[in-house]
Design a protein around this nucleic acid. Structure first.
Lengths: 229, 229
DNA sequence: GAAATAAGTGTAATCAATACATTAATAAAT
DNA sequence: ATTTATTAATGTATTGATTACACTTATTTC
C-alpha cells in the first residue's frame, strides 16, 4: 500500500470566518486588525490555519471561540477561495465559514485583546486579500438562508420583541417589510413562545417579549417550510 | 517580509467532480473504476489533485475535460470535505464540483479508455471514501438550483421537445409535474425558441423542437426570476 | 378509412401575498 | 386628574399565483 500520492503538491489551508451580529444599529460583522505580516495593521476577517489533525468545521469553531469565547454557534461552510496569489506569502487556499452570533453574548475582553471590532455592514473598512469578496458572498448566502429558514434567531437575545425580529429581517434583506404581514407570517409558523413579560424600553405601552421555540421549529423543519417575506 | 507561515501544516487538495447527464432513461452520473491504490477497482467520482499553479475552478475544468473531452461546461463548486481519514493514504481535503453535461456530447473514446461509465442515479454503485455523500449533496444542490434558475438546458441536446424538458425536470426533482402547467410556466419565461422543425421519433403527430434562447435568458436573469414548479 | 399514439391547448377554483388604517395601552407632562 | 405623546396590536378585502383537470388534433400504420 502506498503512503503518499508522491506527485501531488501540498498547500496551506486556511479558514476565514464571517461573523455576523445584530444590534439596534443593524447588521454587523466582526473584523480584526492584523498584528502580523503581511498586511499588519490592516482589517481582516478572523481566520487561522487548518491543523493536520483537525477537520474544517472544527477549525472554524476553534477560531470563532478563540476570538469571541463563544461555543455552540451556528456556522456554515461557504466556499473555497483559491486564487494563486490571494495570499502573497505562501500558496494558501481558504475555506470561508459564516457564523451568526448574538452580539451581546461575546466576550468583550477577548475582542479587545485581539483588536477586534464590530462594523456595520454598510461602513466596514476595506479588507485584506479576497476578504471583501468573502463578505459579499456571505451576505448573499445569509439572505438566501433567511428566506428559506427562520435562521435569524441566532442573532437576537433570548427574549426579543416582534419589532426587533422585524428589524433584523429588514436588516438582513435590506428592504422594508410590512409590519402586519410580517407578524402574521411569523405567527403562522408557530415557532415562537409569547411570554407574559413586556419590554418597557421601547414604548409607553410596552411590547410583549417572545422566545424562539426550538422544539416546534425542529418539528416543522421536517416538512421543510419556506418563509416568503 | 516572511516567505512562509512556518508553523502551519500543509495538506493535499483534491477536486472531485459530480458529472450529471440526462437521457431517455433519466438522470445519470459519470463514474470511474479506479485503477490505482487504494481501492483499485472500486467505483469513484472522477477527480484529481490541485496543482501548485492552478486555481480550483481550473482544476475542475481540467479534470472534466481530461475524462470527457468536453470544454465550456457549466460547473459549480459545492463543498470542501475534510474528515481526517477520508483518504487513507494521506491527509487530503477534497473540494467537490458538479457539472451538467449533454450526455450525447462527450467523447466515447476517452470514457472507454478511462473505464468510466454512466449510471442512473437510482442504481449507481457504492463509491469509495465519502463520494456517496458528495453525490447526495450534489443532487440536493442541483434540485435547488433548478428551482431558482432554468439550469437544466445544459443537460439536453441543442434541440429538444417540451416532453424532454418536462422529463428532465421530473428526473431532477423526482416528482411528477402537470404537463399543461409546466408548459405554460416555461412559456411564460420566454426563454425558448420554438422551431418550425418537428421531432418525429416520439409520436405519429410529431412534436415541435425548441432551442434555448441564451440572450433572452441573460436578459431575464438581471431581474432574478424564480421558477416555481 | 379506422385505429392508435402522443401533442397541444384553456378555464375555473383555490390558495397565497399584498396593501392598507384604526384602536389600545401606558407613561410623562401639566 | 386629565391630556398628550408614543409605540403596540390587530383584520380584511383585493390581487395575483398556483393548482387541478379532459378533450381535440395531427399524423402514421394497418
Amino acid at each position: 500500500m502506498l503512503n503518499s500520492y508522491s506527485s501531488a503538491d501540498k498547500v496551506l489551508l486556511a479558514v476565514d470566518c464571517i461573523i455576523f451580529g445584530f444590534d439596534h444599529q443593524g447588521l454587523k460583522i466582526l473584523l480584526i486588525k492584523r498584528d502580523f505580516e503581511p498586511e499588519r495593521g490592516k482589517w481582516s476577517l478572523i481566520g487561522g490555519f487548518l491543523k493536520r489533525d483537525e477537520i474544517l468545521d472544527d477549525a472554524a469553531i476553534r477560531i470563532l471561540s478563540t476570538y469571541t469565547g463563544l461555543h455552540d454557534i451556528y456556522m456554515e461552510q461557504l466556499h473555497a477561495y483559491s486564487e494563486i496569489d490571494r495570499d502573497p506569502v505562501d500558496r494558501t487556499i481558504s475555506v470561508s465559514y459564516y457564523a451568526l452570533i448574538n452580539i451581546e453574548n461575546h466576550n468583550e475582553e477577548l475582542i479587545k485583546n485581539y483588536h477586534a471590532e464590530w462594523f456595520s455592514i454598510a461602513d466596514a473598512p476595506n479588507l485584506i486579500f479576497d476578504h471583501n469578496e468573502m463578505v459579499q458572498h456571505a451576505i448573499r448566502r445569509l439572505r438566501y438562508r433567511t428566506s428559506i429558514k427562520p435562521i435569524g434567531f441566532e442573532l437576537l437575545p433570548e427574549k426579543f420583541t416582534m419589532r426587533q425580529l422585524l428589524e433584523l429581517y429588514e436588516a438582513i434583506l435590506s428592504k422594508e417589510l410590512d409590519k402586519r404581514n410580517f407578524i402574521s407570517k411569523i405567527n403562522s409558523l408557530e415557532i415562537l413562545n409569547k411570554l407574559d413579560e413586556k419590554d418597557m424600553q421601547s414604548s409607553r405601552k410596552g411590547s410583549y417579549l417572545y422566545t424562539f421555540n426550538k422544539e416546534k421549529y425542529e418539528e416543522k423543519l421536517l416538512n421543510d417550510f419556506v418563509l416568503n417575506l
